[in-house]
Design a protein around this nucleic acid. Structure first.
Lengths: 154, 154
DNA sequence: TTGGTTGCAAACACTTTGCAGCTGA
DNA sequence: TCAGCTGCAAAGTGTTTGCAACCAA
């Protein structure tokens, strides 16, 4: 994983929003705790989608003392800060995705159980179609579509 | 593919698949019970999408003695018979839809909480786009897309 | 009669909440 | 110091399962 890339650039956030998260917490009167540090380390690696349970498990690997409630509370907080968002996967569980990533939806194959991302280019077709036909403003990051992937629908 | 497609104009399932359900149950060595009758009456009216909890509530209105486990088991059974299908709504709950209806997806507005159907015509754009670009065969009936409706995204 | 069904209650998995004690700033 | 945080345990949801009694065929 990419280590701490300290960029002195004044212009753009050097690497990712995660870098100045401690500051952002402070700015809101919140604290930078070991538990949150652990969660964020995990999130940085997981760029994409993860279920809360997976996150909890990953945090436990780094810190045996991790408790679910703390993780859930931290996730709520990070969501308020706009660093993660949550939706629901094909099985209805809470599913989080980190924002530095491009906004994307998910495809779930009922054949092999794999999940893919819907790239913004592809998603645009969906977004545009619904906007044009129904005036509906799609939040692609909340979309999970089931079906069968190329390798499973013969 | 289509299992029993009665193409002939003569022999056409009179109204809906629900009509001969008792027979279909018998054909499989299953039984036609008051509880199932109640559930099916409810399903017939609800054409569209319903959560399991809503179905249970509706059944309770007709029969105070309805218990959740019975409804869940009956739904499983009806799904095996191909009369209903389930997916997950925006909040992750089990969501059922009856098949006589056209295959459709769902739109959920995070602004007003309303849910709309995605008609097959509109859905086709989504299906086609994913098929063309990723070779993914979308199951539209399993799709729930969140966003903001025309009246909420000003 | 008899095996599919039901109701109940307990088990489950996941998430939320209350609270006393701990701790980062 | 002291408000924010954590851990634990308990409460809540929504869904599933085991089992003895029940009843449709």
């Amino acid at each position: 994983m990419p280590p701490e890339q300290k960029a002195g650039a004044t212009v753009r956030p050097a690497v990712s929003p995660w870098d100045d998260i401690a500051e952002r917490l402070h700015a809101n009167g919140l604290r930078w705790t070991p538990q949150r540090r652990t969660l964020i380390e995990v999130l940085k690696e997981q760029q994409g989608h993860v279920t809360a349970s997976e996150l909890i498990a990953s945090c436990k690997e780094r810190d045996r003392t991790t408790t679910p409630s703390t993780v859930y509370r931290a996730l709520d907080l990070l969501e308020e800060l706009g660093l993660v968002r949550h939706g629901h996967g094909h099985d209805g569980r809470e599913e989080y995705h980190v924002l530095p990533d491009q906004v994307h939806g998910h495809l779930y194959c009922v054949g092999c159980g794999t999940t893919w991302e819907i790239r913004p280019e592809t998603g645009a077709v969906i977004v545009d179609a619904l906007a044009a036909q129904l005036g509906f403003d799609v939040d692609l990051s909340h979309v999970t579509i089931s079906g069968r992937c190329a390798g499973c629908h013969d």
